[in-house]
Design a protein around this nucleic acid. Structure first.
Lengths: 199, 199
DNA sequence: GCCTTGTGATACGTTGACGTATCGCTACGA
DNA sequence: TCGTAGCGATACGTCAACGTATCACAAGGC
């Protein structure tokens, strides 16, 4: 919750405010990615952002609200263009996109910190769950459609398959040192859904 | 590295030492599960264990070595009995076991903390990677064998399928609020490997 | 039964981050 | 051009955990 300033007598929308907010949130994300949730400190965010601590406290009442806001910023890292094609082509595009995000994005860098934090903070948990649901939904819709149209085998359960596709990618990211290579998306799809590989 | 005491003139193997170590490691695990990596403190471990801080520092030089040792203790939470049966039956038993571990074990409770910690500490990362590899190996072996014998479809890639099975389970544990239900193991296997479900 | 040694308790100085307060400076709106 | 208000900097008191040191006690080996 950005807590937009109430109107004042002279400067109701000072551009300095928005600028500060942006640079602070950016620094907070960098910090989360590098230091993790545990070592995250307002002091280092201030220093990294080239900003006085007071400025941070001026905009966010607590450490947690800043972190939550920073994570929220990540939500718009952009969804892939589904556009046209067969369900299988669309699926490949999505999976490749997710793998790319898991490998390169700021979100992915912060993910371990988020997971640890969400374990204990309900607000972050809500955000975290929503993110995950939003990643899953288009996948499930696509799989349902594909199964109905006969593009995918009939025994395929869309929900479990979505878990498996996302799971394979994030398992690699979180539990191994090698993130899943986006170029292996077709392979992954082929092994989970069988026939008609685009290899 | 337990850093076993060198032999002394009188008490080369005082049982008090081993007892302290055990109770401290146990408390450290509880603490990691509840407080996470970030908030983990030696002081609370000491209090929880009913032990003086000095006793902890007597056995571990730093916080990190204690944490690493504590995680190492988890490694022997026991593997499932593979024993007999078709590859498919064995597979189901493994998957169910993994799901159970992900849902109930002390290891799983500490996993978010471990993931965040491993992101930054090389020693923990090594441990983490080894754990993951050990979970994956029997799965891959089984899948290879099953594919060779014709129990599983020929298009199945053992490595990617192992990632998918484990991934689905841990994705649920780490990214949603609902751990994967072990009873859905047959369903999961059926949707990933097709035909001959044990439903 | 003696003496060694690990132990719980506790006090200590140090550090690092918290969140607050103050103070010129200057970007900004009018 | 003027006054406001957001700003960076910095100092402050507080607090919690760090890691060390000390001490009386009792568990253990011989």
């Amino acid at each position: 919750m950005p807590a937009r300033r109430a109107a004042r007598n002279t400067a109701p929308d000072d551009p300095r405010v928005e600028r500060s907010r942006r640079v602070i949130l950016g620094a907070a994300l960098d910090e989360l990615g590098e230091a993790g949730y545990g070592t995250f400190s307002i002091e280092s965010v201030a220093q990294r952002a080239g900003v006085g601590k007071a400025t941070i406290y001026r905009h966010w009442p607590h450490k947690l609200t800043l972190i939550a806001d920073a994570f929220r910023m990540l939500q718009d890292e952009g969804d892939p263009e589904l556009a046209t094609g067969t369900p299988r082509e669309k699926l490949e595009r999505i999976v490749r996109h997710v793998a790319h995000v898991a490998k390169h994005s700021a979100f992915s860098k912060c993910l371990p910190a988020l997971i640890d934090a969400a374990e204990r903070d309900p607000a972050l948990r809500t955000f975290h769950r929503r993110f995950q649901a939003e990643a899953r939904r288009p996948l499930i819709a696509l799989l349902e459609q594909g199964v109905a149209r006969g593009d995918f085998p009939r025994h395929v359960d869309p929900e479990l398959t979505a878990f498996s596709l996302l799971g394979a990618i994030f398992f690699c990211r979180l539990m191994t040192s090698k993130p899943f290579d986006p170029d292996r998306a077709p392979e992954l799809i082929h092994t989970l859904l069988g026939t008609r590989a685009a290899r």
